[in-house]
């Protein structure tokens, strides 16, 4: 993962088998676009990167993690809709 130069980092864990990941994906894309100047966005396929799932203690897809200065500030272990995610990001910015 590249170094974090923006204020916040969002990591979204997904895999090909999880139906809600398909619904989550466009929301993550939109958030990435809307907060482009402030937010690093990383989408991780948990099957391809089990070591990252382990590192962040992720056991469910989709899961979304927000890091501020490299520290986890939020961990959402289910689908999250756009308005809730937007509110969370604004709170931490």
């Amino acid at each position: 993962m590249s170094t974090i130069d923006k204020t916040l980092t969002l990591i979204n864990f997904e895999n090909n088998w999880c139906a809600q990941c398909y619904t989550q994906r466009p929301i993550i894309n939109k958030i990435s676009h809307d907060f482009n100047s402030y937010l690093n966005v990383r989408v991780v396929n948990s099957d391809a990167h089990p070591e990252l799932a382990k590192k962040y203690n992720v056991y469910s897809a989709p899961s979304t993690i927000l890091l501020r200065d490299g520290k986890i500030v939020e961990k959402i272990t289910r689908f999250i809709d756009q308005s809730q995610l937007t509110t969370l990001i604004k709170y931490y910015l």
């Binding site: 895999n15 099957d47 089990p50 203690n57 056991y59 469910s60 272990t77």
Partner: peptide, 17 residues
């Protein structure tokens, strides 16, 4: 829920290898 409790084996099973 989402931290080991799951309702979908095909979604989350691979986290338990």
């Amino acid at each position: 829920s989402g931290k080991g409790v799951s309702y979908c084996a095909v979604c989350d099973g691979s986290f338990f290898k």
